[in-house]
Amino acid sequence: MKEYTEKIREIAKRLLNDGTVDMVIGFRKGTLPMMNQPHIATCTDSADELMWDSNCGLNLANYVTDRKEKIGIVAKGCDSRNLVTHVIENKIKRDQLYIIGIPCSGMIDHHKITAMFDTDITSVKESGESITISGNDFSKKLIKQDVLCENCAACTHRNPVEYDELVADLVEEQTDVDPYESVTEIESMDAEEKWNYFEDLISPCIRCYACRNACPLCYCPTCFVDESTPQWVGKSQDPIDVRTFHLLRAFHCAGRCTDCGACERVCPMGIKIREFTKKLNKDCLELYGWEAGLSLDERPPLDTFKTDDPDEFIK
């Protein structure tokens, strides 16, 4: 990862110096272990803060929405797909972006790792495929592959789909994984079990909306949950209000979600919110052969009409 960091800094400084971009959006080290922060470098000094490791799971496409400047942006496979989605949805122009592509080997799951230890983790060090976790009185070595985020473990687009320059050679894409395993499992339940499954899933939700704020797709000036005239959904912890929020949030991401996992990463309650969006992703793939953000030239299924669109649901 050190090579990635050096390369990112080198590219960022070059772009800032020769005026190709006004800023470079990337990551810097966070104040807590496994919590890298988005960083906007506007001069070569601050470009030296840019870095890369397996804790860069936030989605940087979130920070380019409606910007007018020329932007250099560090992008993993999933971020690049969200950048494409942004371009398609007119939230940024392709020629405003200089995409620094990161061939990605997956991000590690801080929820999973935190749950493995009883006491606070004070440092997480990475070297090659191993991760060393230490706290006040312990130190443990883990294999990165075992603690990957769920979406990364099953990711089939690790290489950026759109980029101007790469920081390293492309990585091999995974082909023997099934991103929709859990969806298929839920599909086989009866209505009662499904209802209860999602009831349990979202019962810890505190309606903090971190999942919404972290998602690059959620750029509405006023989110439906915040509106009060009319008020679309109750603001309480009532299970029906919570469910309404989750159903609508997910449906607003239909045909657009890239399964980047940023929503899950930021959830303070560790809720597996991707269970909602994954079903929509699977439907989009099965009904329309569509995966979000793969091409700048294709319109998404929800804004096109074809005479052979599936219509069994309507009578």
Binding site: A191, W195, L247, A250, F251, K279, F313
Partner: peptide, 20 residues
């Protein structure tokens, strides 16, 4: 949308779509 709501536990038969 029908698929999705039924996936989260709304019983089949409760949700209907029609063009009239």
């Amino acid at each position: 949308m029908k698929n999705f709501l039924e996936h989260t536990g709304i019983e089949p038969g409760r949700l209907h779509f029609s063009w009239i």
